[in-house]
């Protein structure tokens, strides 16, 4: 596992935020996932060693939180909100549109490694439903046409 010097610096800094090192588990996993894209076994062992924990302590955290990915996802990670307010405004159609545009099923990666579509729970933007997050950017009021436009921007 080759972490960028910048990531290592941020890791050492964030550990100082807590009275107990173990608290830095989530921040470290976020930083590593941002750097290398997912959380492989060696990252779990690395975090455990860094925070003086057993690997199981980190493993059980990784498997609990849906945002941590054990396998690589597409470079463009499209998260469509599935929950009630978005569904009422048509998010199931939006999700289908993305699937069709990229020819891919949920949680898979397109063969070129570019795109993963996930149907996620409420993104706390229900007033502008349906909403879609692409990597870190939130898109609001996404109807089928807007989904096609967003897909075309990515392609």
């Amino acid at each position: 596992m080759n972490l960028k010097p910048e990531t290592l610096k941020q890791i050492d800094e964030v550990i100082t935020h807590y009275a107990a090192k173990r608290s830095a588990t989530l921040p470290l996993l976020h930083l590593i996932q941002e750097d290398i894209g997912h959380i492989p076994d060696e990252a779990i062992e690395w975090v455990a060693a860094k925070l003086e924990l057993e690997p199981i302590n980190v493993y059980e955290v990784v498997t609990f939180y849906p945002m941590f990915k054990r396998k690589p996802v597409g470079r463009r990670h499209i998260k469509v909100c599935r929950t009630l307010s978005c569904a009422l405004m048509g998010s199931y159609k939006v999700c289908d549109t993305f699937k069709k545009e990229f020819g891919v099923e949920l949680d898979e990666v397109t063969p070129d490694g570019e795109v993963t579509i996930e149907f996620v729970e409420c993104l706390a933007s229900c007033g502008t439903a349906p909403v879609v997050m692409i990597n870190e950017t939130l898109h609001e009021n996404v109807d089928e046409q807007k989904a096609v436009d967003l897909a075309n921007e990515i392609k």
Binding site: S23, N57, E60
Partner: peptide
């Protein structure tokens, strides 16, 4: 990291301690 139950205050505290 994407879990609703982290909003429940004691779940939140466990999460802040680096656990499930």
């Amino acid at each position: 990291a994407g879990a609703y139950i982290c909003g429940e205050e004691t779940g939140l505290i466990e999460s802040l301690e680096g656990k499930r």
